[in-house]
Design a protein around this nucleic acid. Structure first.
Length: 608
DNA sequence: AGATCTACTTAGGACACGTCTA
DNA sequence: TAGACGTGTCCTAAGTAGATCT
């Protein structure tokens, strides 16, 4: 095996601009020369590496400080717009758009087996305990973002009302904004309207393309996927998760992010290397053989200074094995959870805890003092703790929880002598608990809600309800889908129509019945038929009504996240097998490939 | 002992895509 | 037969854990 990393001379922003604008040919030339002269990059290695590193550190530090500041500020002012006050400092950051590649030169190339080839049943193999992730690995490297294509000359950019010529690079940047005109970044001075219109038109064109054109695109895409979307690992073909590099564009943080709208630069390979060959004449920043990690390539993103990776698809052994281990850990927790709970309940009264609140330490549970409110009484309940805080992705968590008096008292103690911004707890780790709670809840809810004699649709509803209980527990929210209101209306109308149909049918049915009573055989048959039709209509109505509740209950709840990340798939597999529900009804194709191990491992008797 | 770094999982939104319906 | 609509996939930001550095 071999790993490599391409080494790109970092350059400053404006230098880059100049080079680009003046003479693109200089770049490859310079590289070639460089390569000849310093094949082992002994020269400016220090400079090249140190400066970007410093810059990165600075970016990160700044952001962290910023976050701290704004957190505290938010508490004080409860303001929403504090981010406007602080402008990201403009500074020259050394280009770090370099790619590291982990790969391998396998001695023997495994013959690639035919598509849809045999499943690698890694779960039937021995697990390695030494942290080595693979012995051979072979891949084609990442796919770079397509080069920028200039907009037609009649599509202009206006500054202060006047059309302005833009360099290629600037124009590209302008298009980033132009594509987001409906967001409120860019209204002052700059006029992106023409560009915006152009892209709108392009998008329309794409949508209106003929079947053939679309097909051509699809085929091209598939070819690319076939070439770059897979790797060979330990002799097995595995799907890669994200084989495309992130294209340049605007950084879009979630919530009120201070770096929102900053430009994320194009990633360069620069410098040629062999195995996965980088585009144009250049080599990778580094080529590395490291079989203790799972990534295939990495680069540094310039806005936040973070390392980004190309990794495998969830269907791969590497990911699947880890997933399996996660659920096994959660199951082990199940065996000791009662003991743990008994212990901490017991320790609620421990004096030891009481002394700790003076220490202003920070643990790994990030709940801070300002995130909870204690109410001796609230809405008729006693000892209520109100949780209210922004969670991951700035999703709000709000919950009023009635707790035992002792817990309440302890919380009071924890909050004593603390100020806003201080952590409420120290040394707390909740990770395994999340997986455990989710899976445990699914199992118990399924037990509770599944009627073995019910129909498949009814069972599915039960499953969804169980899934929903978990999603609520984990606070997996989503914004109400765009057409929700309307789609509910449509559904209601359908239901109404169905009800009318039932009324009509019922009336006819009674008429036939009456007639049948008078003895006519024909009427009897008719009555029978009507009866059956009535039954069917009622069934359909029931389904629609179920769908209505299901959809409405689900409008702000995302089921996918828990299904994909927290629910032991074997619970679902076993449930399907036990109740004769086809697995396709609950796992779509992606989910089935991710959880193939579970489909094979679990029989109907599996219990979490 | 805390800060930082690396590697990896978790997360919701955008958008592409396929299907259903008028 | 297009357009509406719901679902699936892609994208990449935002977390955490554990190792390593200072």
């Amino acid at each position: 095996m071999s790993q490599f990393r391409s080494d790109e001379p970092p350059f400053e922003d404006d230098e880059a601009e100049n080079e680009m604008d003046e003479d693109e040919e200089d770049v490859p030339l310079a590289m070639r020369k460089r390569k000849q002269e310093e094949p082992d990059q002994a020269d400016g290695g220090m400079d090249d590496d140190d400066i970007p590193l410093l810059a990165r550190k600075k970016i990160k530090k700044e952001y962290k400080e910023y976050k701290e500041k704004t957190k505290k500020k938010r508490v004080k002012e409860g303001a929403d717009d504090e981010y406007d006050i602080i402008k990201p400092k403009k500074k020259k950051i050394k280009q770090e758009s370099v790619i590291k590649i982990v790969t391998v030169s396998p001695i023997k190339r495994q013959k690639i087996k035919e598509e849809e080839e045999e499943v690698w049943r890694w779960w039937e193999e021995e697990k390695r305990a030494d942290g080595v992730k693979w012995t051979t690995l072979e891949h084609k490297g990442p796919v770079f973002a397509p080069p920028y294509e200039r907009v037609p000359r009649n599509v202009r950019f206006y500054y202060d009302g006047k059309p302005l010529e833009l360099s290629e690079e600037t124009e590209e940047a302008a298009t980033f904004y132009a594509k987001m005109l409906n967001h409120d970044y860019c209204t002052k001075d700059c006029n992106f309207q023409e560009m915006f219109n152009f892209f709108q038109a392009e998008s329309e064109k794409r949508k209106a393309a003929s079947k053939e054109e679309k097909l051509v695109k699809k085929i091209e895409n598939e070819a690319l996927m076939k070439e770059y979307g897979f790797c060979m690992i330990d002799g097995h073909k595995e799907k890669i998760g994200n084989f495309r590099l992130e294209p340049p564009g605007l950084f879009r943080g979630r919530g009120e992010h201070p770096k929102m709208g900053m430009i994320k630069r194009r990633i360069q390979a620069s410098d040629e290397s062999m195995v996965p060959s980088p585009p144009s004449g250049s080599r990778w920043k580094e080529v590395r053989h490291d079989n203790t990690v799972t990534w295939l390539a990495s680069w540094i993103e310039n806005v936040q200074g973070q390392v980004k990776y190309i990794m495998l698809n969830p269907s791969s052994k590497l990911k699947g094995e880890k997933d399996h281990i996660k659920y096994e850990t959660a199951r082990r927790l199940d065996k000791v959870i009662d003991k743990i709970r008994a212990t901490y309940r017991d320790e609620w009264k421990s004096k030891e805890m009481r002394d700790e609140d003076q220490a202003d330490t920070v643990g790994c549970c990030s709940l801070r003092v300002e995130h909870v409110q204690l109410h001796k009484e609230l809405n008729g309940k006693e000892n209520v703790v109100v949780f209210d805080f922004p969670g991951k992705d700035s999703i709000r968590y709000y919950n009023e929880v009635e707790v035992e008096k002792r817990v309440f008292k302890n919380l009071e103690l924890f909050m004593e002598h603390k100020k806003e911004g201080d952590d409420l707890f120290d040394r707390l780790n909740t990770q395994v608990f999340r997986t455990y709670n989710a899976s445990k809840t699914l199992q118990s809810q399924l037990d509770l809600l599944t009627d073995p004699s019910a129909t498949v649709p009814e069972k599915l509803l039960a499953y969804n309800r169980a899934n929903r209980a978990v999603a609520i527990l984990c606070n997996h929210q989503r914004s109400v889908p765009k057409g929700h209101e309307k789609s509910m209306e449509n559904l209601k109308e359908k239901i109404k129509a169905k009800r009318d149909a039932i009324d009509d049918c019922e009336a006819e049915y009674h008429d036939f019945k009456k007639a049948a009573k008078r003895g006519s055989v024909k009427e009897k048959v008719n009555a029978d038929k009507k009866g059956k039709q009535l039954e069917r209509l009622k069934d359909q109505l029931k389904k629609l009504e179920l769908q209505e509740t299901d959809r409405d209950e689900n409008k702000t709840i995302a089921l996918g996240t828990s299904k994909l990340n927290y629910l032991d798939p074997r619970i679902s597999v076993a449930w399907c097998k036990k109740h004769g529900v086809p697995i396709e009804k609950i796992f779509n194709k992606t989910q089935r490939t991710k959880f193939l191990w579970a489909v094979h491992m679990a029989d109907e008797n599996y219990r979490f």
